[in-house]
Design a protein around this nucleic acid. Structure first.
Lengths: 145, 145
DNA sequence: CTTAAATAATTGATATATCAACTAATTTTT
DNA sequence: AAAAATTAGTTGATATATCAATTATTTAAG
């Protein structure tokens, strides 16, 4: 058991990659004062404006409590607005503001730039295989047990 | 630009995988009261007992301030000990305690279990290609610029 | 219909990440 | 050798993750 090299471990390798991707994405949004997680939430709302926090939590795979905090910050920045649901007063529906809608292209662009930089020298086939393996690993680690 | 699917984005895909790997590793250490980051630091010390915090920071790619906090917690749990360096009084050398040395096999085992579960149905060739692509992406995102 | 169970969101506790500012000690410059 | 620059580590601020506990509201059971 003594020969175990953490540098070769899958988890460590992947987490380093993820960390760099996050930093690169952040760099591509540097003038915007928006974190990658805040961007993620906004991006979801572009396609699903007016969904609930619970739905947002599911879509982003962020914890409900994280969603609460992220939305607090986005509301402070006037990028989203929470509105009580009439049918069910426990629920908030989350809406993008005009300001948020106006930065859509920049947010998308930042993501594309990041991907392009990440992908240099990698063929579509390679990428496709890579995605498949990612998906396999993800499925292997499903969290029931 | 309107057709950008965040579910298909590399960064999101990878971060979900990393999150599950971390949770699985944590599960495999559940009775130990050690986080994955604390484990990482300890694992490095198995191979480099007595190195400085700066060296630990470099090896783990954790920020120096994170190293400070992680070591604080490990010291509270009596798993490591900081000793001032005689030659350079700014520096701490970090040593594992007997207690930490005694759990080495369990920590390694937890990592192996996690990898094994992650790898089910993936061939060595596929894994090797996967690693290569990971490394390429990582290199593409080197942080000079 | 009223009590009990479930649900949506928030809050609190603890751990980490990133970055800037700071302290103490060591080198480098001059 | 004294001032200036560098370095190791810590601390503080802000953002997020995870998990448990709480509040308010709704639904289900009796």
């Amino acid at each position: 058991m003594t020969n175990y090299d953490i540098d070769q471990s899958l988890g460590y390798m992947l987490s380093k990659v993820v960390s760099r991707m996050r930093m690169e994405l952040l760099k591509n949004m540097r003038d915007m004062d928006i974190t990658t997680e805040q961007r993620h939430v906004i991006m979801r709302l572009y396609n699903h404006d007016g969904i609930t926090q619970k739905e947002l939590s599911k879509l982003t795979s962020y914890d409900p409590s994280s969603i609460t905090l992220i939305l607090d910050k986005l509301e402070l920045k006037k990028l989203v607005k929470r509105e009580r649901c009439e049918k069910d007063r426990r629920v908030f529906k989350v809406y993008l503001t005009t300001k948020a809608k106006s930065i859509k292209d920049k947010l998308i662009e930042a993501g594309l730039q990041t991907q392009n930089k990440a992908m240099v020298g990698i063929s579509n086939d390679e990428l496709s295989n890579f995605r498949d393996i990612c998906q396999k690993i993800y499925n292997n680690l499903s969290m029931e047990s």
